[in-house]
Structure formats: C-alpha cells, structure tokens
C-alpha cells in the first residue's frame, strides 16, 4: 500500500518535473514605451485630490445652504394669520372684484 502511494508520488513528481524545463524569456524592449504612455494617459485622466476635495466641499456647502433656507422660510399659515390679524388682504383682489 505504502509502496503504491510512493509510486504515485514519484509519478506525480516526474510529471511535474517537466515544468522545470520552462525557460525564462525576455520581455519586449518596447514595453517601457507603452508603460510610460499608459502612465501619461492616467495622469491626464485623473483629477487631482485637492480638486476632488474642493468640489465635494462646494457641493456640501450648497446643500447646507439649501436646507438652511428651506428650514428658515416662514410657513404659509403664519403669513396668512398675520395678514388676517392686520386686516390685510392675502390675495390679489384689491378692488373687491367678483
């Protein structure tokens, strides 16, 4: 049993030993040019971090201002009751037209 398993192991090793014969090959000499080109394209396409932060900050400030304005805006009911108390018309029927 042991002998059989060691035979299998040997066979396995022998089969895989063929992978030791794979030779190292040289990379193409033009690779560096292509890499430099890719790096340049990446540089052009990428937006710098300070810009990203400033855009994000502007959007955030605008959003905050909007929320603040909406929260501060007086409710229509308050305006109507104030106009009623002061006997003001809260419509545009100034001449009591029908």
């Amino acid at each position: 049993m042991k002998k059989a398993s060691s035979n299998i192991m040997n066979e396995m090793e022998q089969t895989l030993d063929i992978l030791n014969n794979i030779k190292e090959v040289d990379a193409s000499p033009f690779l560096i040019t292509r890499i430099q080109q890719k790096i340049e394209i990446d540089k052009i396409n990428s937006i710098s971090t300070p810009w990203v932060f400033s855009i994000a900050a502007t959007v955030f400030i605008l959003l905050c201002l909007n929320v603040f304005t909406i929260a501060k805006k007086p409710q229509m009911n308050e305006v109507s009751s104030l106009a009623k108390n002061m006997n003001l018309l809260n419509n545009d029927n100034f001449y009591n037209e029908q």
Partner: peptide
C-alpha cells in the same frame, strides 16, 4: 521586467496577455 513578465506568462500562457499584465503591474 523579466521577473514580472515571466510570472504573468505562467498564469496566462499567452504573450499578448502577459505583456498587458506587465504593463498594468508597472503602472
């Protein structure tokens, strides 16, 4: 360069693909 290129070759077993991987690695 050769170390990266040869390693990529063992994974993809294809020259064009290995070159593409090598480029990505160095970028």
């Amino acid at each position: 360069k050769n170390m990266v290129y040869n390693l990529a070759l063992q994974y993809v077993q294809n020259v064009e693909d290995a070159e593409e991987i090598t480029q990505d690695v160095f970028v």
